[in-house]
Design a protein around this nucleic acid. Structure first.
Lengths: 334, 334
DNA sequence: CTGAAAGCGCTAACAG
DNA sequence: CTGTTAGCGCTTTCAG
C-alpha cells in the first residue's frame, strides 16, 4: 500500500476516523488523551492528509490558477512572484499555465484549470479578446485580469497611473532645463500608450510636443527607428528623448553609441518600466519603476478576499504609485 | 447548485452514471444511441468533469510540482517554460512553489506539494542541503533536481558540460591570437566553477593560466573586482578576459567604459550563460548560451517517463550541447 | 452493451 | 467528547 490514510492513523491510535479528523482540523473538542494518541500515530506513520480528498468533500481546492502569456517575460515573472508569495500566506497554491498569446490556448487553460477546481484565476496577458472574456465570465470563477494594454468596462484591475507617472518623469526633464523633448511612442493604439502621450503632452505643452510613433517595442525596434529620431532631434534642436519603455530607450542608446552621440552629454534619454537591464546598462537608464511585485500581491489579495466572499473584487481600479529612478542617462542640460 | 456533475448528465441523458463515465473516457463500448444522448447532455449542460474527484479515485493527480529558488531569476523562468510546455503535452499541470533559498521553505513546499498528491517534483535551486535531500527521498515522490552548483552521488541531472564548453570558448580566443587570457572565477568552491577552471586551463595550458577568484557573481561584483583585474592585465600584458558568467563580464565592461578602456579594441571580454542582457549590451557580449528551455523539457520528459514506470529516471547525467555566440566583445587581436 | 454498488480519503451531521 | 453514517464526484468491478 501507498501513503498512510486517516484510517491507518485511526487504527493505530485506537480511535475512530472522525476523531482523527477532529484533531487534524481542530474542528471539535477532543480529549487530551485521545489527542495524544492520535498525534503519536500521525507522527509514527508520517501521515499527511490527502488534500485532494479533503478538497473534494469540502468543495474547496485552495488552488488559484495563474495564466501568463509567457513566463519568460521579465515583468510577468515579477508579477507571479507577488502572487505566489502572498497566495501562500493565505494557503493558496498556484497552478501555472501559459497561453503564449494565443486565444485558443488561453481558452484551453481556463477550461483545464476549471476542471482542476481552481477557486480563482489571475490572467496576465498583454491583450485578451472579448470572446475569451465572455467565456471567462461564464465559468463564474472569480478572476482578476492584469492586462497591460487594454482596459474594459466593468473590469477593474490593479495598475499604475501611466499618465501621471510619465508626466512626472517628463517634468523632471523640463526641470533639468530641457525645453524640447521628443517622445517615442508605440504606433499601436492602446490605453497605456495613449495615457503616456497625454502625460507627456501635459508636461511639455501641446504646442511644444514632438512625438514619434514607431513600430514595435523591443530594443531592436528602438535601434531601427533611431536614425529617424536623430534626424528630427537635429532639425528641431531637441535635447532629451523619453521612450515609452526601457527596451526602446536601450535600443536607441545603442544607436547613439554606434554613431558617436554621447548620452547624456549630447542628449538625455529616459525610459519607462525599470527592466533589469536599465540599471546595468551604461549609462544607467533613468526610468520609472513599476512595482510589479506589489501589483501581483494586491491582485491575489483582492481575489482571495472575493473568494472568501468578503467583498466584491476590486470595486474600482486600484492605482499604486510608481517611482522615478534618476540615473545616468539624463541630466541637467549643459 | 453549482457545476453540473456526472449525475446531472446521466439524468438528462436518461442513462446511468456509468454510461456517462464510459463515453467520457472511452473506457468501454457504448451503443451509438446512448453515446449520442450522453454527448448531447454534456454539451447542453456544458459539463466539465471534476478532476479532483477523478484524481481521487484514480489515484493520479496529473500534477507535478515545481519548486524554484526564485522565479525572478532569469534562467529559472526559462527552465519553467520548458517544463510547463512539455508537461502540458503529457497532460501534466504545474504547481509552482518558491523556496527563496531557504531550506525550511523548501521542506515546507515539498510537504505541501506532497499533500496535493503531485506525482513528481522538479526542484530548481542553486544549492540544496543533504538533510532536505534525505527528506525528499523519503517522500518516495520521483523527482529531478536541477541544481546549478552541486552534484550528488546517485542523483543524475540534465546539464551542459561546463568544462568542455568553457574550453571551446577559450580556445576560440586563442585561435583569435590571444596568448594571455585571464579567467575570472567565483571564489566559492562549486562544481561548475571547478569545471570551468579546468576547461580554461586545458585551453591555455596550466603554466600559462591567470586566474582571479572573486567574491560574488553579480555585475556589481564584476565591477568591484575590475581594478584588481586591470592591474593584473597591465602587468602581464593580458589581452582577453573570460568571466565565469555574463553578469560579471558586464560589470567588468562597465568598469572599462568608466575608465576609458575600449572593449574589444583594447581588451577582449567573454562571458558565459547568454543572459538576455548579453545581446543587448554594447558591445554585444561573446558568450555561450545554455539551452535552459531544453534542459527543462528534457527533465520533465524524464520525470514523466519515470512516473509512468517506463523506466528509471536519468540513469546517467544527460548532457546537452551549448552554443558559442561570437559577438562584439571579443575579436582577433590587433 | 448497461446499471447497481462499492469505494478513493476525507468531513460533517447525527446520535449517543 | 466520540463513533457511525452518509456522502463529495467519479471510476470500476460485477452481474445481468
Amino acid at each position: 500500500m501507498g501513503q498512510p490514510t486517516i484510517k491507518d492513523v485511526a487504527k493505530l491510535a485506537g480511535v475512530s476516523i472522525s476523531t482523527v479528523s477532529r484533531v487534524m482540523n481542530n474542528s471539535k473538542p477532543v480529549s487530551p488523551e485521545a489527542r495524544r494518541k492520535v498525534v503519536d500515530a500521525i507522527n509514527k506513520l508520517d501521515f499527511k492528509p490527502n488534500e485532494l480528498a479533503r478538497s473534494l468533500v469540502m468543495r474547496k481546492s485552495n488552488l488559484v490558477g495563474v495564466i501568463v502569456k509567457d513566463i519568460g517575460i521579465e515583468y510577468m515573472a515579477q508579477l507571479i512572484r507577488g502572487i505566489e508569495e502572498i497566495g501562500r500566506v493565505y494557503k493558496y497554491d498556484i497552478i501555472l499555465s501559459s497561453s503564449y498569446g494565443e486565444d485558443k490556448q488561453l481558452e484551453n487553460s481556463i477550461d483545464f484549470l476549471a476542471t482542476k477546481q481552481v477557486e480563482g484565476l489571475v490572467i496576465i496577458t498583454e491583450d485578451i479578446s472579448t470572446e475569451v472574456l465572455v467565456k471567462l465570465r461564464e465559468t463564474k470563477i472569480p478572476f482578476v485580469l492584469l492586462d497591460k494594454y487594454h482596459s474594459y468596462k466593468n473590469i477593474k484591475t490593479v495598475k499604475i497611473d501611466f499618465e501621471s507617472e510619465e508626466n512626472r518623469l517628463v517634468q523632471s526633464l523640463t526641470q533639468q532645463g530641457h525645453k524640447k523633448i521628443l517622445f517615442v511612442a508605440d504606433k499601436e493604439q492602446n490605453v497605456i500608450n495613449d495615457s503616456m502621450v497625454k502625460g507627456y503632452e501635459s508636461a511639455v505643452g501641446a504646442d511644444n510636443s514632438y512625438i514619434l510613433r514607431i513600430d514595435g517595442i523591443t530594443s531592436d525596434d528602438g535601434y531601427r527607428m533611431a536614425d529617424q529620431a536623430i534626424e528630427l532631434i537635429r532639425k528641431e534642436s531637441i535635447t532629451a528623448v523619453a521612450c515609452v519603455n526601457d527596451e526602446i530607450a536601450i535600443g536607441f542608446m545603442n544607436y547613439c553609441v554606434d554613431n558617436g552621440i554621447k548620452v547624456p552629454d549630447d542628449l538625455s534619454v529616459v525610459g519607462f518600466g525599470d527592466s533589469k537591464i536599465a540599471s546595468v546598462y551604461r549609462p544607467k537608464l533613468t526610468t520609472v519603476s513599476i512595482p510589479y511585485y506589489d501589483i501581483g500581491a494586491i491582485s491575489i489579495r483582492a481575489l482571495i478576499k472575493r473568494i472568501k466572499q468578503e467583498g466584491e473584487i476590486l470595486v474600482d481600479d486600484w492605482v499604486i504609485d510608481a517611482q522615478i529612478h534618476q540615473r545616468e542617462s539624463s541630466k541637467v542640460i549643459n
